[in-house]
Amino acid sequence: MSTRREFLRGLGAAGIAAAAPSALWAEDGRRLLTATDVHVKDYPTVAAIEWIGQQLQQATGGRLGLRMYHSGQLGRESEAIDMARFGAIDITRVYSGALNNAFPLTQVLSLPYVFDSVAHLRRALDGGVGAQVLRGFASRELVGLAIYDCGARCFYNTRKPIRTPADMHGLKFRVPSSDIFMRMIRLLGGNPTPLAYGEVFSALQTHLIDGAENNLRSFHSSRQFEAAHYWSQSAHSYAPDVLLMSRRSFDSLRAGDRELLLDLARRSVTVMRQRWDESETSARAALVAAGVRMNECDLPAFRAAVAPLLSDYHRVPALEALYRDVRSLA
């Protein structure tokens, strides 16, 4: 992608890619933070991060600002994670499923049928569960700024309605690069195919895959519904998004600026949720108008099929403790 190449070329020319983040400060003391998201410009997470930038600029009199690279302009989420870890970018929004293998505590947030509803998820994220997960990113040169919930993840495909796990047998489903999601699809009878988010639309069109799983808002904003006309309300996961910052970039800020950024990140969750709730309603209406066929699922059958997956993770003490905390809030 040309934007990403131009961005990295600029970093290299300035000697920034291998330098400390303090090299990004202008001579007059101003600094423009960089942020990335694979979602489109009007997506709720993008809007929330842009809100952080606006508030930063106002609170510091323009001394701090933020430039948002949306729509995957700087590459895939996996690339953004590494770029943040090494200080090439400052902030990135990443789907928690893409973090499962490197950051074990995020696995609890992604496991199937851990959360009963959006309200249950938000109670967990706003309390000790969310705080513990965010602290876990410190182990690999990242700062967890906030967690953005993003609704129920459900299955959609190009072939037929999915009402029970038997309907998934033999179908190829895109999954993120997460062991949890790959095994979940296998237990449900499907064939998991790891792909980057930006490759899903063309994979559906060319029949490289038969379907995928995601939230309703992403299904709509990515226009994947133009290729996949069947949406099945499996609500198998409520895996949220995480807002991360480079530890190097964070530490290079003044103490007061670090506190300001953390406060704004926490407050941006409310901004994101308001945008999310409004846009999810309008997205559902648009999908129905476009002819997408929506059906309910046999949820007890889905829960029974993935039970072995949950059992394995219960054997990990740290995950089991966090799981119990989550379920206590149901």
Rank of each mutant, 00 (worst) to 15 (best):
L145F: 10
L66Y: 02
G144V: 11
S221D: 12
L253P: 11
F173S: 07
Q107H: 09
R315A: 15
A138R: 13
Q205K: 08
S2Q: 07
Q274N: 14
V129M: 01
S237N: 08
H70Q: 10
S71H: 15
T193K: 05
F219T: 06
I81F: 09
R153C: 11
P112K: 10
G75E: 01
L260Q: 09
G65V: 01
R159S: 15
D126W: 07
L264W: 13
K41P: 03
E226S: 04
F250P: 03
L125F: 03
R93N: 15
A290F: 00
R303W: 11
L243R: 00
C150M: 11
A13Q: 13
M68T: 10
E296W: 07
Y230Q: 12
C150E: 13
R174Y: 06
G127Y: 04
W51S: 12
G211Q: 03
R163H: 13
L310W: 05
P165H: 04
R123V: 00
F155E: 12
F103C: 08
A265T: 06
Q233W: 11
I185P: 09
A305C: 00
V118S: 07
A318Q: 15
A18M: 04
M272H: 14
D277I: 04
Y323V: 05
A304Y: 08
R76T: 15
E6Y: 03
L287D: 01
Q224V: 14
H229E: 08
R123Q: 01
M168K: 02
A286N: 14
P194Q: 11
G65C: 02
G65Q: 06
K160N: 09
Q73L: 07
R258M: 01
V175D: 06
R31P: 00
A289N: 02
F7I: 03
V269W: 00
A166K: 06
Q73D: 14
R275Y: 04
R63D: 00
T45N: 06
T281R: 15
T206R: 07
R248P: 02
L171N: 04
M83N: 14
W51R: 10
R163D: 08
S232A: 11
A307P: 10
L8Y: 15
E50S: 15
Q205T: 08
Y43P: 02
L310K: 03
P44G: 08
I49H: 01
I185N: 10
G189P: 06
A203Q: 04
G151E: 09
V271T: 03
L171F: 05
R31G: 04
G144H: 11
Y69L: 01
L99C: 13
T60I: 00
L188G: 05
I91S: 05
G151L: 13
S237V: 01
S328N: 03
M272F: 09
L322F: 14
G198R: 03
V38W: 07
F181H: 14
Y113E: 10
L264I: 12
A18V: 03
A283S: 13
G72D: 06
L8Q: 13
S178R: 08
Y43R: 08
M1T: 13
G12C: 09
L309C: 07
G61E: 01
V46Y: 10
P165D: 06
Y238F: 07
L195I: 12
D325P: 01
L121T: 06
L66S: 04
G128D: 10
E141Y: 12
G211N: 02
S22W: 10
R163V: 11
L66F: 02
I16M: 07
L262C: 10
